[in-house]
Design a protein around this nucleic acid. Structure first.
Length: 364
DNA sequence: GGCTCCCGCCAACAG
DNA sequence: CTGTTGGCGGGAGCC
């Protein structure tokens, strides 16, 4: 108790070493996934427990859970209870999302014209939730529309329903009528799941994201973070002493799970960036013994948009975009900025328009 | 200096 | 009402 050997050797204990990276959503997500995955079948995740195990506030768990739910790995069972669906659920969910997105595209609404806007608009229509409420047609949950889950789903659609491979958060934000800040959260989680990756635009070095899970031929995924032996995980768990002990559940912690094995792995700080997805092995995750992780029904044969040569074109166009981005800083005043914005929007618009055309005549 | 994005306030929502 | 969820943006860390 009072034996506080306060010497200067306690490096990881020194509050001045604090790095916000140690608390990033992505890292937390990795740990959370580990937590979930180690449980066998019938794994029910308790938010309190999870927060406790990971040494973070509940608030952060909500963020992660919502995003994870958007791609199906989790689903809400009850208050404070989530069910772990496994990684195999992702392809299904994404597939569905893609279908949804494409459908929305074909039924172009009046004002919504390009992919982004269609996606952004489509959640403003009715939810068709059976017949629960009698004449309960008041203003639709504005709150719900803006939820992280919906936004995350739309973000996914953006990748799968448009021809662009590289998407900057900036663009995505304006496309989805959302705040960029929120997309950072989502992107970080997806990155930690290896669904997408962040790369730099060659010219300007502006970060953009690209979908990398189960690409063309390799049908296994990624999600390396789930298990694997990569010891690049940062310290975490019960070691975060400086994590504002503000509002945790009391110590009586009824450990639902066996005992937290999420203890610190003790690794050096900077090396996680090295091994990105790079090598996506065929297995390395299905060691749980269950039928998890199948990733079957997701082939390259999607995108009915028969863009044979169009694809090439669009690739080309992307360069233009990058080019445009590069020039962005040149515009100083507001007017010019808006002009630029218009330009970008126009670019997106016509691109999609073309896709739509193909779509239509493909329909017949 | 701009890009990232953690933190936690506090308002909806559920019980 | 209390407790749970989670939008939201201030502002600080990081490049």
């Amino acid at each position: 108790m009072s034996s506080s050997l306060h010497t200067e050797d306690s490096q990881w204990k020194n509050p001045s070493i604090y790095s916000r990276k140690d608390k990033s959503l992505g890292l937390l997500c990795s740990n959370f996934l580990k937590l979930c995955d180690r449980e066998g079948v019938d794994s029910t995740i308790g938010l309190d427990n999870a927060a406790d195990q990971l040494g973070v506030e509940r608030r952060r768990i909500y963020d992660i859970v919502n995003i994870l739910e958007s791609v199906g790995v989790l689903s809400r069972k009850a208050k404070n209870q989530y069910r772990w669906n496994g990684y195999s659920a992702i392809s299904k969910a994404v597939d569905l999302l893609k279908k949804e997105g494409l459908k929305d595209l074909s039924t172009v609404s009046s004002t919504c014209r390009n992919v982004s806007n269609v996606i952004a608009c489509n959640n403003s229509d009715v939810k068709e939730k059976g017949e629960g409420k009698t004449a309960g047609s008041h203003k639709i949950d504005n709150r719900k529309e803006k939820s992280l889950m919906i936004l995350a789903q739309n973000f996914v659609k953006l990748f799968h329903c448009s021809d662009v491979d590289l998407i900057s958060l900036d663009k995505a934000a304006s496309a989805l009528l959302a705040k960029t800040r929120r997309l950072y959260d989502i992107a970080n989680v997806f990155v930690s799941m290896n669904l997408i990756e962040k790369i730099r635009s060659p010219d300007n070095g502006k970060p953009v994201f690209r979908w990398i899970a189960w690409k063309e031929n390799l049908r296994t995924g990624s999600l390396v973070s789930a298990k694997s032996d990569d010891s690049t995980r940062r310290t975490f768990g019960a070691e975060i002493t400086n994590t504002t002990p503000k509002r945790y559940r009391d110590d009586s912690s009824s450990d639902v799970m066996s005992n937290g094995q999420v203890k610190r792995l003790k690794v050096s700080k900077d090396d996680e960036l090295k091994d990105k997805k790079q090598e996506i092995s065929t297995e390395q995750l299905n060691e749980r013994g269950t039928k998890d992780f199948v990733f079957g029904p997701f082939g390259p044969s999607s995108l009915p948009r028969s863009g044979i040569s169009g694809k090439e074109n669009l690739k080309q166009i992307q360069n233009w975009e990058d080019l445009a981005s590069k020039y962005h800083p040149q515009y100083q005043n507001k007017a010019a900025n808006e002009l630029f914005a218009h330009y970008v929007e126009a670019w997106e618009s016509w691109q999609v328009e073309a896709a739509n055309e193909l779509h239509k005549q493909h329909e017949h």
